[in-house]
Design a protein around this nucleic acid. Structure first.
Lengths: 137, 137
DNA sequence: TTGCGTGCAAAGGTTTTGCATGGCA
DNA sequence: TGCCATGCAAAACCTTTGCACGCAA
């Protein structure tokens, strides 16, 4: 399956390391580019997209679509699927992406599969709504 | 809140009527444009986007983001929030958008609110995964 | 040496915007 | 008549692609 990614390059390692060091956070391609630009390390936009695409295919990184016109967001999730036990909630008011740890998620996943035959890819799904902070103000 | 939409125009009525007549289905802006082009009714792209934006703001139409690079999808959902008792599931293999009626949805909604303080907007959320048909093949 | 990775620039696609014109009230 | 809506074209934006060069193995 992994025909791509034959070579281990410096940029590949640096991007992966950056994403790993910010586990739990998400970045757009442009933000990643800016991060390295800030360290005097220029990485071409195409390279960033190509590396991210590879990591998404491998499964170590997830991509989220938030709003029309916005960039996609990328987040390191690791090699093991065990860490996927949280909801991704996007607040429609303040725009934050919130990670909620919750066992209910797994129950719902099983329900969707057994009752509806739908094999839910929990990682890719984003729940839209209003977060606690915004709700109180 | 509704400063916009002061005038009722022919195009507005036609677009809304088309979306209403296809309730349960979703269309991209381009598909809507093509539909009217097929009836010798040309509607400018900008007009379609502007009308859709208005309807989304009003709440009678929902917008879904499916894949990067793809267009957003629009679907008529009506004025009442009662119809929102179903999941929107996008099959990552065949690309279909599936509507699943399910009470579990409301339970999850209550759970998210009471345990995590997150007021989930169920209509906007799309569950990604693999549908029953694709799973069996 | 072989062939993948990179960077740059250009292309591709969707959505938004500016501006003059047309239509609703 | 006063504004809003429309259409066209251009702009803005994110992402992908082509190609020559660089680098890993």
């Amino acid at each position: 399956m992994t025909e791509k990614g034959k070579y281990h390059t410096r940029h590949q390692a640096e991007i992966l390391q950056y994403l790993q060091s910010t586990r739990g956070m998400h970045h757009t391609a442009a933000q990643i580019k800016d991060h390295f630009a800030g360290e005097q390390k220029n990485i071409g936009t195409a390279t960033i997209y190509r590396q991210l695409e590879r990591m998404v295919e491998e499964g170590s990184v997830r991509r989220y679509l938030l709003e029309t016109g916005d960039s996609a967001c990328y987040e390191y999730v690791g090699e093991s699927p065990a860490c996927s036990n949280h909801f991704h909630c996007k607040c429609e008011q303040c725009g934050r992406l919130i990670h909620l740890d919750c066992d209910e998620l797994q129950e719902l996943q099983e329900h969707l599969l057994s009752h509806h035959g739908f094999q839910w890819n929990t990682g890719k799904t984003v729940f839209y709504g209003v977060c606690e902070q915004c709700r109180r103000t």
